[in-house]
Structures are given as C-alpha cells and as structure tokens.
C-alpha cells in the first residue's frame, strides 16, 4: 500500500518516524497444520485493528514497512508521536485469519539499520516460580 508522499519537503517539516522491531508468535499445533501467516494477512489485521481501536485519524500514521515470513519477525514504521499507540495496538493483537497469535516487541529505533539489530538478538524468558507455601 503506497501512502501519500510530498516530494522535496525540507527535513524540519518531515514527520519524525520510529521503527518497531517485533516477533510474531503463532499458536503451535494449530488447526491448519502449522500454516504460516503472510505479510499481507498480518498487515490487513493490523490495519483492521487500528481502525477499530483508534479510528481513521490514527490509522493514517501507521505503515507496515517490512515483514519476513520465514522467521516471523518484522519491522513496523510509524510516526514518533504515535509510537505508544502502535505498541498498544500490537499488544492487543490476538488473532489473524483464525490463528491465535501474540506479538512481542523487540525494540524501537529511529533508523531501519538500528532496528535490524534488535531482530538479531532477543532474550528468552528465564523467570522462576515463587513457592508461596511456606
């Protein structure tokens, strides 16, 4: 989807952008034999969710920039002012095309190059259970 772009805009008038690196976690052993989601399906769901949650006003400031289908990782582009709103939106995503999913945000950066670093290294969970029966 190509958005409206005005050419030759001086840097001071350009909108500040942020890139959000994320990982898509799809339900294991799903009904569709571990079928993977396509970038288009995911993008449509993000758009739909943005429209229902925030309306058309916010939706105009969200753009899907990159999505790697193999690893389930991707980068989402948005304006700096709406960063928190987009992260809240990703947090609330639970289903795409009937498949249960969860989106884990890996990091935020002002450049695409900076954002790609987050895709390479993310930590795993190693929390411990507290025994409350003492």
């Amino acid at each position: 989807m190509k958005g409206f772009k005005m050419k030759g805009l001086p840097p001071a008038l350009r909108r500040r952008k942020r890139y959000i690196a994320f990982k898509l976690i799809v339900e294991k052993n799903n009904k569709r034999n571990n079928e993977k989601l396509t970038a288009k399906q995911f993008f449509q769901e993000v758009c739909q969710k943005a429209l229902t949650l925030y309306g058309e006003w916010y939706f105009s400031q969200i753009k899907l920039e990159l999505f790697d289908e193999k690893s389930g990782e991707g980068i989402l582009k948005c304006t700096r002012e709406k960063l928190d709103a987009v992260i809240a939106l990703l947090t609330l995503l639970t289903e795409v095309e009937g498949l249960s999913i969860a989106v884990k945000t890996l990091g935020v950066s002002g450049t695409l190059r900076g954002c790609r670093r987050f895709l390479k290294s993310f930590k795993s969970f190693n929390g411990k259970e507290i025994n409350t029966e003492r």
Partner: peptide, 12 residues
C-alpha cells in the same frame, strides 16, 4: 518455555 514472559524475574 514461554518466551513472551521476557522481563519478569519471578512469577506466582
């Protein structure tokens, strides 16, 4: 092995 719980040190 729930990687989505990253950042929490302990859980009840």
């Amino acid at each position: 092995e729930c990687e989505l719980l990253e950042g929490f040190d302990f859980f009840v």
